[in-house]
Amino acid sequence: MNQTAIKYAREIEALFAKYPEEHRQSAVMPLLHLVHQDNSFISKHAINDIAEIVGISTTEVASVVGFYTLYHDHPEGKYRFQICTDLSCALQGADEFLRALCAALEIDPGGTTKDGLITVEEVMCLAACDKGPLFQVQGKDGISYHERQTVESAMQTVQELREQEKHE
């Protein structure tokens, strides 16, 4: 049973309308985004489902998952704090910000908090170089930017997410 096809039937229809009929492979990336958003990673099962939906091999889908950094094929934190430590941000203290935030969360860069909620990753330039230090949060609401951050403001976001989690 292709669970993914059932779950996203409406979205799939809309996606197929977007691309020429003989190029349904184009729907691979949007479908991966959908699955990632809902599960915070992409399981092998979902990869197989998506391959079937768009009519390519599961290896080809796995290849796409492997190439792009916003796709993850193993579970980590539910929310990924992706901190830009690239040049412009580094000139504005992003490296220090990363270290301080990790210390506050009691993890190493790349690690996940004990409650499994937050993974902190270092990423390349996010096109917000005038508003560093900053990070984006990849989670079930897609991706959102948090600019001109301090450890305090970042920890407040963490707190909000933890609260929200409790209520769910």
Binding site: S26, M29, L32, H33, Y68, T69, L70, Y71
Partner: peptide
């Protein structure tokens, strides 16, 4: 006009 999202690749 359609939008298409990448996924992290310069």
């Amino acid at each position: 006009i359609h939008t298409h999202l990448g996924a992290g690749a310069y």
